[in-house]
């Protein structure tokens, strides 16, 4: 989170980088930011683990405390890559697994009773977070987009519909004709003065939208002015997640580097330090 804090205070770092000379033909890489000697890259931005965890916590709090609406649930952001074939179940969990854990009890019946569903979606180029949602009672589905000018609904809505079809199938619910006139398909975004003005905070806006979705208050009240508070809340939420693993006691460790070895030649590979980096280039690796 420290990197995020740094970025938060430096919206115009690119233009002020002292070592960079800019001409009118310069093309800037929006994913590499710099302050002092700190390069902040896209990998320091909010990843799916944080977004999914925060959404799950929001939902659990609502269900536990009953302080806000409980007619909703969040599904994992991995449903998108799973339905589009960009991830496999072995590494990120299967589609069915993710649907099963969408409610605290893991009951598909409970999930099917929820009228409102939301799914964080990451896509586009450059990658960008939006929040897809459906409200079965109001027959409304849509995408919350913090920069609607990017028209991310063009990739997000088809992805959302594929996910929704998959969830309906998993929950043995009848299919819906999403594209028919009985369903309203919307793009929601903050008021113009509250929209995302930087090139990094779409994940925070996605969390902001998740909060508003949970409250059932619509998506128009908050935006750019609330980024700091949503970041703080996200950190506080994550720090409250229970610890579930015991620390290994009295575990012996050594400092040896692993070695990348040739495929199918595990027993005969030479041992050694991570001069293996050099060896790695020579190693035949199956890709």
């Amino acid at each position: 989170m420290s990197a995020l804090t740094t970025v938060a205070n430096t919206q115009h770092v690119l233009g002020s980088t002292p070592t960079m000379s800019l001409s009118k033909h310069t093309v800037l890489d929006g994913h590499m930011l710099r302050i002092r000697n700190i390069d902040v890259t896209r990998s320091d931005l909010i990843p799916s683990t944080v977004i999914d965890a925060c959404c799950a916590i929001i939902q659990e709090q609502a269900e536990r405390e009953g302080s806000i609406a409980t007619d909703f649930c969040f599904f994992s952001s991995w449903l998108g890559p799973l339905v589009s074939g960009h991830a496999n179940g072995r590494s990120v969990g299967s589609f069915c697994e993710h649907v099963s854990v969408a409610t605290a009890q893991g009951s598909l019946t409970d999930t099917a009773k929820k009228e409102r569903w939301a799914i964080p979606l990451c896509g586009g180029s450059p990658p960008y977070w939006v929040l897809g949602y459906v409200d079965h009672r109001r027959k409304e589905l849509g995408v919350y987009d913090s920069i609607p000018e990017l028209e991310s609904h063009e990739w997000a809505e088809p992805l959302l519909l594929r996910i929704l079809d998959g969830i309906h199938e998993r929950l043995s619910m009848p299919g819906c004709r999403w594209l028919s006139s009985e369903w309203r398909r919307l793009v929601k975004s903050p008021k113009p003065e509250q929209r995302q003005l930087d090139a990094w905070s779409c994940g925070l806006f996605c969390l902001l939208a998740a909060e508003e979705f949970a409250r059932g208050t619509g998506f128009n009240s908050n935006g750019n002015n609330h980024k700091d508070s949503i970041r703080t809340e996200a950190l506080q939420r994550l720090l409250c997640i229970p610890i579930t693993r015991r620390e290994a006691e009295g575990q012996l460790t050594d400092n040896e580097e692993p070695e990348i070895i040739e495929h199918g030649d595990a027993t005969s590979a030479r041992r050694g330090g991570l001069e293996a980096t050099a060896q790695a280039h020579a190693a035949r690796v199956v890709w």
Partner: peptide
């Protein structure tokens, strides 16, 4: 093994 099935093999000591 990556999510797309690509494989890299390592040899590593059990206490590393």
């Amino acid at each position: 093994v990556s999510s797309s099935g690509e494989e890299v093999f390592f040899k590593i000591k059990r206490n590393t």
